[in-house]
Amino acid sequence: MSKIGEQLKELKDGTRYSFKGTFQHNGLKSTDYIDKMGNTRYQPTFMLTDIYQIDTDGKEHYVADHLWMNLTKLFLKYGWLEKGDLVQFDGKVVEYMTQRKNDFKIERPSKVIITRSEVTLPHTGSLKKLSKKLTYKIDLTLKQEISCYPSLA
């Protein structure tokens, strides 16, 4: 296990911690769900880099070079994330099994704060205002991602 995996492993105690990272890009992951037409469903995701755990006194501890998270409504309340946005949130470290090894991820995010160009973004409070714009951007991103993988198109 890598040194970074070990750093996250130390935080796998069921406690919620504060984390921050830099948004890089969106992505997709396949789910185990197959719809009535026999098509695999895909979950929108996003990648953060340079992940730090933040102590209650504000001290930062580097824990991972990158992290993939589900792109949920909680994050979409801030609009479409842009490369370089600073994403801060609370979450729990959990262990999961990949095809090759055990790994760690941060799940159940809460208390999200997005900072862009040193300005904290307000959340809309309602996705209704953003739904058409976000749906279009998500659809466009999904189509671009899937076209990169001929087996998914």
Rank of each mutant, 00 (worst) to 15 (best):
G91R: 09
Y136V: 15
K132A: 06
P150H: 10
N39C: 14
E10D: 09
M1W: 00
F75M: 01
K59L: 12
R16C: 07
V87C: 01
Y33A: 07
R108I: 10
N70T: 09
L140H: 09
E107V: 15
T22I: 13
L71C: 02
R41E: 11
S110L: 12
P44A: 11
T31M: 06
K3W: 02
Y42C: 04
L86W: 00
G14H: 06
I34K: 15
K133D: 07
S2I: 01
E118H: 15
D65Q: 09
S2M: 03
W80N: 10
Q144A: 14
H61V: 13
D50K: 09
V112T: 06
F75D: 00
L140R: 04
T40G: 14
K12I: 07
P122Y: 01
T141A: 02
M1Y: 00
L67C: 08
Q99H: 12
T72D: 01
R116V: 01
R108K: 12
R116G: 03
L142G: 00
L8Q: 07
S126E: 03
P44V: 06
T45S: 11
Y62S: 10
K20I: 14
T22C: 08
R41S: 14
Y149G: 00
L140Q: 09
L11Y: 13
L71W: 01
D55A: 14
N102W: 10
Y136A: 14
S117H: 06
S131E: 11
Y33D: 03
E107Q: 12
Q24F: 11
I51V: 12
L28I: 12
I54C: 14
E107T: 12
F75Y: 08
V112L: 09
T40M: 15
I146C: 11
